[in-house]
Design a protein around this nucleic acid. Structure first.
Length: 950
DNA sequence: GCAAGGTC
């Protein structure tokens, strides 16, 4: 029998669809995830009788994240987050679901995707497909398209199975990657900086940035500021009251005439006019007119309208509303609740849906009368359509709902019935009078047909009864009074905020509510007593800070541009990678400038949090001073990044440290170096980024520009030569002989211990024998021996403790008194240690925290991958803790940038000699030189200048 | 400890 695996986006949907297809005759089996069952039945699809397994996910299975160390906040400069690799991982609590899929697909012959028919659903569909194809690469895949879980829709989808749409899924990938990179970069930047700048108030705050939460915050701030700038004004007005009993049956009727001038902002002027009207005075009716009025029935309901109505009419907030709507949908009571469509298709079977409601005790009668209307249900349609889902409507009667579920269902149903009925009709009478030279008027309303209002009790259209007047009538007003008031500008309500988000495309129907929740949680905004949004100090400061920099970070336009590009990817008019790269590039530039102008952020926030603590440049971001990757490591494949050494020099270092110790030390002639976005066409493995260098002109030959973009991947002989020349102290004007008699120059040769040398003396970075010296200065290292460059002047900055060399391939164990080393500098030339992470006595239990007291051992209690893992932390009370943290099982010294970093320098690979050697294997000793590798054709034995393929 | 998007 032909077995078909069907997968829905969530268990409720799988169950509901199985129920429909099986005619309630399905078997249930447990999957590996307790939330996602497997429903089994037989069904005719794909032209034959099939044995169906129907299981589900719980939304996305996969989530983008950075790789390896880049997940750690201090691993790199946040700028790198625009460039380092990202990967999709199975979300931790989705592993069971993935394994269920893998198990089930093994004995299936076809796969049908039943995820929601929107952008995210398409992407989730591909997550399923990729997992299944990994197990069974050639399994046929189909896509069921449906917009509501009803018999008709589901069976129709089953009879018209289609193909999944890669482009739609691509668009989601782009969004996900951008959201992660931008969000993480700015969040780390803001958080790390502001925690240091305002340690008293923000030290423990997470100050997040997100492409949706920030514009949402922006709306709140913008309205608040508009209100602040708003000048409330006092105004005055006059009204005329007339109470009369025209017939005993109606009793006395009071009509309040309002002033034609509406209001005046000058009290004196108003008083002057009022003086003429004060009783006793006679009013003369100058005009009476009557005209038909109608009140429009509501438009077909989309998600935003549902959220707004629920917030306004039912006082259920948007988040709660969507949760309920989702559940009503999966129970089959309403259509898909995430829709941008407010127009019913022409051939939509409204009668059937109205018919479903005719038995309801409250609105059944109305539904019946609606069916009996001449022309039947005629929905009031808007002009929006997402081409995927119809407007929200009830799909069947729901007699047993309770609480807010019932209230939301009722809102949707009454709205639907109202929308399909007719506008309310009335007759309005307008009476104008003149009193003391001033004109006044009053409107009365007689409702003739209530129509939709009968069912839609959320709308009020009260008839207003006024007395009967005729032109020329004269009467003495019961009262003429002068009243005063004050103009106001209101703050945003939740409904207002949702409207703005919707209008500007911030978030999706499903997430409006969550973004609002986030900015509340982050203390960016708060609510007033009457539930209106008020920005907090943090929210104000952040928005103002970026405004000061000149970036519209809190404006919705940036997100809107992305949305437009995503639509282009979906319809095939834009390429996934082009869009991705363009947006990354834009945001990278913005981010770079934001860092440069970070003082503006401090400035704006100091208006709320007091004086800013001065912090130097970008140091605060990242104590390790790392930068975006230059190239993949030829040894281990991880990224190699530029790092600044404490002495000001630069190195190219593998992020796989300490497992991979590949590195390249650059000579001191390199004054500055940054990664360029351009990629070398020759060097492998690609991408090897070119770098922007500033060289000391006094240290390089005259023919070589001191400021240029070069490749340090080893393909360029000039670069290879000059960087060595530089470190050897070439003088201006001493042009290097080209390809001539002189021995070919090498890149700076790292110091190798010389196993065959008698003294076993290490080589310095100039490839010279280092000299051994002894610490003379008083201190903990007095008498200790160290190696340094032998040259008196112009030498390199090589430094190595002699006693660190004894087992050079093991990470050195720091002395127990190590915590002093950051302050006790025994080397006149360079500090002993760069403290990045607190030092500890690796391997022993008595680790010291940053406060220099013994750290305590604790065990992770929280559920998660680290549960049960032992770590060390500061022993002080939580509020006073120094932040020290160390896994008990961490590789000793793995994140410590100290003097150990100088010791393994003998392992450095030369760029022209990157090889496939495994890390930690002995390398051939000494200074023997390999044959050159051509930068163009990669053949060994010649350079690109002499390349035969050139 | 970051996002937004699914979902429980």
């Amino acid at each position: 029998v032909f077995k078909v695996l069907n997968v829905a986006e969530k268990n409720d949907a799988a169950k509901r669809i199985s129920d429909i297809l099986s005619g309630h005759q399905y078997q249930v089996r447990n999957g590996l995830s307790r939330f996602n069952k497997i429903y089994e039945f037989n069904y005719y699809m794909l032209g034959q009788n099939c044995s169906i397994s129907f299981t589900s996910l719980s939304g996305h299975l996969l989530n983008y994240d950075f790789t390896g160390i880049y997940r750690k906040w201090y691993s790199c400069h946040p700028l790198s987050l625009f460039d380092v690799a990202v990967e999709k991982n199975v979300t931790e609590n989705m592993v069971d679901i993935k394994r269920t899929l893998e198990r089930e697909v093994r004995n299936s012959q076809a796969l049908v995707i039943w995820t929601d028919c929107d952008r995210e659903g398409e992407n989730i569909g591909f997550e399923i497909i990729n997992i299944c194809r990994n197990i069974k690469s050639n399994i046929p895949v189909y896509r069921a398209r449906f917009s509501e879980i009803t018999d008709r829709s589901i069976k129709s989808a089953c009879n018209n199975l289609q193909q999944p749409d890669q482009r739609v899924s691509d668009a989601v990938d782009v969004r996900q990657e951008l959201d992660l990179r931008i969000g993480a970069a700015f969040t780390r930047f803001q958080t790390l900086r502001l925690q240091k700048v305002f340690p008293n108030t923000l030290a423990d705050k997470l100050i997040s940035y997100g492409s949706c939460q920030f514009p949402t915050l922006g709306f709140v701030v913008e309205r608040y500021k508009a209100r602040e700038q708003f000048q409330p004004e006092d105004f005055w007005k006059i009204e005329v009251v007339h109470t009369i009993t025209q017939n005993e049956a109606d009793g006395p009727i009071t009509s309040t005439f309002s002033w034609k001038r509406n209001r005046l902002f000058n009290e004196l002027a108003c008083q002057v006019l009022y003086a003429n009207c004060e009783t006793p005075v006679v009013a003369t009716v100058t005009n009476v007119s009557s005209r038909p009025r109608s009140r429009w029935r509501p438009l077909a309901m989309d998600t935003v309208e549902l959220e707004k109505l629920a917030s306004r009419k039912l006082r259920i907030n948007a988040k709660e509303t969507m949760k309920i709507a989702e559940s009503l949908y999966t129970q089959g009571y309403i259509s898909y609740p995430r829709t941008e469509t407010n127009s019913f298709p022409k051939d939509f079977n409204l009668e059937r849906l109205v018919q479903e409601q005719t038995s309801h005790p409250d609105w059944g009668g109305f539904a019946s009368r609606l069916l009996g209307l001449n022309g039947g249900p005629q929905p009031r349609n808007g002009h929006k359509s997402d081409q995927a889902h119809p407007p929200i409507h009830p799909t069947k009667a729901a007699p047993h709902l309770t609480g807010n579920n019932a209230r939301i269902y009722e809102l949707i149903t009454r709205h639907f019935l109202a929308c399909c009925h007719r506008d309310a009709k009335g007759q309005e009478t307008s009476v104008e009078i003149e009193v003391g030279g001033e004109s006044f008027s009053v409107q009365g309303l007689m409702i003739i047909e209530r129509n939709y209002l009968e069912v839609y009790h959320y709308d009020r259209w009260n008839g207003k009864i006024i007395a009967v007047y005729e032109i020329g009538d004269q009467f003495e007003p019961t009262d003429v009074r002068m009243t005063s008031g004050r103009t106001t500008a209101p703050l945003l309500t939740e409904a207002d905020l949702i409207s703005l988000m919707d209008k500007h495309g911030i978030g999706t129907d499903a997430t409006h509510a969550e973004h609002i929740e986030t900015i509340k949680q982050r203390m960016y905004v708060g609510l007033t007593n009457d539930q209106r949004f008020l920005p907090g100090e943090l929210g104000m400061g952040l928005v103002e800070g970026y405004d000061l920099m000149g970036y519209a970070m809190s404006r919705p336009e940036l997100r809107a541009e992305l949305e437009a590009d995503l639509r282009r990817i979906c319809d095939g008019t834009a390429n996934k990678n082009d869009v991705l790269q363009r947006h990354i590039s834009t945001y990278r530039s913005v981010f770079q400038e934001a860092i440069q102008k970070a003082d503006k952020l401090d400035e704006a926030l100091s208006a709320y949090f007091g004086d800013a603590t001065r912090v130097e440049g970008s140091n605060l971001l990242n104590p390790s001073g790392a930068s975006p990757p230059v190239r993949p490591c030829p040894r281990c494949g991880k990224d190699m990044i530029l790092k600044k050494k404490r002495d000001g020099g630069f190195m190219l270092s593998c992020t796989g440290y300490p497992n991979c110790r590949n590195a390249l030390f650059l000579p001191s002639s390199v004054l500055d170096i940054t990664v360029d976005s351009s990629v070398c066409p020759n060097c492998q493995p690609s991408p090897v980024h070119q770098v922007n260098v500033k060289l000391n002109p006094r240290s390089i030959p005259a023919y070589f520009s001191s400021d240029q973009i070069i490749c340090i991947g080893g393909c360029d002989d000039d670069v290879t030569n000059v960087l060595v020349l530089g470190s050897r102290g070439a003088r201006p004007g001493t042009a290097a002989p080209r390809g001539g008699t002189r021995e070919k120059r090498k890149m700076p040769t790292p110091a190798h211990p010389h196993p065959h040398s008698n003294e076993n003396t290490p080589m310095c970075n100039c490839s010279e024998m280092a000299v051994v010296l002894t610490v003379r200065r008083e201190g903990p290292n007095t008498g200790r021996q160290f190696y340094k460059c032998s040259k008196q002047s112009g030498g390199c900055d090589f430094f190595l403790w002699a006693d660190d060399r004894q087992s050079p391939r093991q990470p050195a164990t720091p002395p127990t008194s190590f915590s002093n080393h950051s302050t006790e500098n025994t080397n006149p030339k360079k500090p002993c240690v760069i403290i990045f992470r607190p030092q500890q006595n690796a391997g022993s239990g008595d680790r010291m925290c940053k406060c220099n007291i013994q750290a305590v051992q604790r065990t992770v209690q929280k559920d998660g991958p680290n549960k049960g893992r032992v770590f060390y932390t500061c022993d002080k009370p939580r509020a006073e803790q120094c932040g020290f943290f160390e896994w008990e099982d961490a590789v000793p010294g793995s994140l410590v940038f100290g003097r150990h970093n100088t010791t393994p320098s003998y392992r450095l690979a030369q760029p022209s000699q990157y090889n496939t050697q495994q890390p930690n294997q002995p390398r051939p000793a000494g200074r023997s030189r390999k044959a050159p590798t051509c930068g163009l054709c990669r053949e060994v034995g010649h350079t690109r200048r002499s390349c035969p393929n050139r």
